[in-house]
């Protein structure tokens, strides 16, 4: 596929309105809203920063980098193993299932929009129930296919993650729309820093969890009134 401007597909995938289903998941953050820990723009921003500096750095972001590197050497087996590891890392059922649903949907939509052989394989592996689907791999596959650099792929994925959590916070906390957008400006230096950190991580650091967040994700199952599925 000839791509004269790789910016457009990246903008498209990073759009918080992209129909991946991410708008129905808070990934445990609703527990913090429910218990009052998140009750303002400042408190949400703090949690978002820690989320990105941990969950995104060691798991989602690093998975995106490792998948991209697997594609560079044509090792698709590495991608399917990453997909299985990402699913195995999920200790909280709702979050694990949320990631799977979003991932599965993301693979199906993006593989239709930007078809290529790797996506064909991914769809096949999904059909055979060998893998589960994960958005980290989708960002890597589409970026590699369109000739977008590794750092840009991870940056876009990080921004998409932040943007989707901000949109959910606007509805869930709630925050003003402008407050939400302001957070997306304020965290830009952090996102740059995070991408640099991901580039330097060792593969053995993959999947380091945040125990408090995991507990919040587990506790979400028992919250009575909820806006989000996780």
């Amino acid at each position: 596929m000839a791509m004269t401007n790789a910016l457009f597909p990246i903008l498209q995938l990073s759009d918080s309105q992209f129909p991946s289903g991410a708008f129905s998941h808070s990934f445990g953050l609703e527990t913090y809203i429910s218990n009052g820990t998140i009750n303002s723009s400042a408190s949400f921003r703090k949690v978002l920063e820690i989320f990105l500096a941990n969950q995104f750095v060691y798991t989602d972001g690093l998975a995106c980098r490792l998948a991209y590197e697997g594609l560079e050497i044509g090792n698709l087996e590495q991608l399917w193993q990453l997909d299985q590891s990402l699913y195995a890392l999920g200790m909280a059922r709702e979050t694990r299932e949320g990631n799977r649903r979003i991932g599965d949907r993301f693979v199906k939509i993006v593989s239709t929009l930007y078809p290529n052989q790797v996506f064909d394989q991914y769809n096949m592996e999904l059909k055979n129930k060998n893998v589960f689907g994960h958005s980290a791999l989708v960002f890597a596959i589409v970026s590699k296919h369109l000739g977008i650099e590794r750092e840009t792929a991870i940056s876009s994925y990080g921004f998409a993650t932040a943007s989707s959590l901000v949109q959910n916070a606007v509805r869930g906390v709630p925050l003003g729309q402008t407050e939400g957008q302001k957070i997306l400006v304020d965290i830009q230096p952090l996102l740059t820093d995070i991408v640099n950190r991901i580039m330097l991580l060792d593969e053995t650091e993959f999947g380091i969890g945040a125990p408090g967040l995991e507990i919040a994700q587990m506790q979400h199952e028992a919250i009575d009134v909820r806006l989000f599925m996780s």
Binding site: I50, F51, N54, L89, I208, G209, P211, G212, L213, A216
Partner: peptide
């Protein structure tokens, strides 16, 4: 796959961590 790492120079006391 459970992966726990406690590294005190990464501010373990903060939210989402301990």
């Amino acid at each position: 796959f459970d992966h726990l790492r406690l590294k005190p120079d990464e501010d373990l006391m903060q939210l989402l961590q301990l």
